[in-house]
């Protein structure tokens, strides 16, 4: 770690928002990683223990089938985090490919690719995702495809703008005059120097991908019961909100905390990289 990185890390951790975000995200990631060790069987039903309030045996109570809510929420963390990471990786890959190509080739290619991006931005995201997931069949994998299909355009725009800004900077000119190929310039020079804005966007997007996917599952276009996906859990237990609010509120609060954590992280990284915004 060089001095600049150390200073940036210090600034990042000095900001109460990003510190809080990091702590929540770290706890959620650890809980998700060690879920099989901490949690019980998320699918085990025990009808004699249905709708129990939180107690020492069932930390977050039980749902209408007597399943342990705590175990289900922890398993759900694995599902949601994995989903968020895969969706963001997919969108990052497609978006970067489109953005890099448009920025480097320019001209007609740039126009064509950017107009396609505009069209995808004009699509109503949730309706498109719903249609894709309904058509492919409602399950978790198709939800990831559907959400990635609506979230890649922002990366394409971002990376294109970066490429246009960097295209004629000295070190790129130098690489070009040394005979580097377009692909090498793109992958070795342009992409690495665009990592930071992409990171900010990706951090926000993990949260919003989790939120969108859970929304899709809630209305039945995503994970199907009894899979302990957070949105599906809220949906399954919604009719018991009056007698057992813990059953639907626990997964909902888990979504809230996860999204909040990644939004705070995104804010924090942006503030470090763009000192002007941290003055606000």
């Amino acid at each position: 770690m060089n001095d600049l990185q150390k200073r940036n890390l210090r600034r990042f951790l000095k900001n109460p928002g990003s510190l809080l975000g990091s702590i929540i995200a770290l706890i959620i990631i650890l809980l998700a990683l060690f879920a099989p060790l901490i949690a019980g069987d998320p699918l085990a039903q025990n009808l004699s223990e249905r709708l129990q309030a939180p107690n020492p045996n069932h930390f977050l109570g039980t749902d209408q089938l007597g399943r342990d809510v705590f175990s289900r929420v922890l398993q759900g963390a694995r599902i949601s985090l994995r989903l968020g990471l895969i969706v963001v990786s997919l969108s990052l890959f497609v978006g970067s490919l489109v953005g890099l190509t448009a920025g480097i080739l320019g001209g007609l290619w740039d126009d064509l690719l950017m107009r396609i991006t505009d069209i995808f931005l004009a699509f109503p995201a949730l309706i498109l995702a719903m249609a894709i997931s309904a058509a492919l069949g409602p399950n978790l994998n198709n939800v990831m495809i559907a959400v990635a299909a609506v979230s890649w355009p922002s990366y394409a725009r971002l990376l294109r703008a970066q490429v246009l800004a960097l295209k004629h900077v000295e070190f790129v000119d130098a690489a070009r005059s040394l005979g580097a190929t377009q692909t090498r310039i793109a992958l070795r020079h342009l992409l690495p120097n665009s990592v930071t804005p992409l990171m900010v966007q990706a951090s926000f997007d993990i949260g919003s991908a989790i939120l969108t996917a859970a929304g899709l599952s809630f209305i039945g276009f995503g994970a199907q019961p009894p899979i302990p996906e957070w949105g599906a859990m809220v949906s399954e237990t919604r009719n018991f909100i009056n007698e057992a609010p813990w059953a639907s509120s626990s997964p909902a609060i888990a979504i809230l905390l996860t999204v909040l954590a990644f939004n705070l992280l995104g804010d924090g990284i942006r503030d470090v990289l763009d000192p002007r915004s941290s003055q606000r």
Binding site: F218, I219, R238, N242, S249, A252, I255, V259, N263, L264
Partner: peptide, 23 residues
């Protein structure tokens, strides 16, 4: 504002219905 931006609105909906309508 941060919490509002991270809340799943369907949960907010069933919570508000439960409180202001049912209860």
């Amino acid at each position: 504002a941060l919490i509002g931006g991270a809340t799943p609105i369907y949960w907010l909906a069933i919570l508000l219905i439960s409180i202001f309508h049912t209860k």
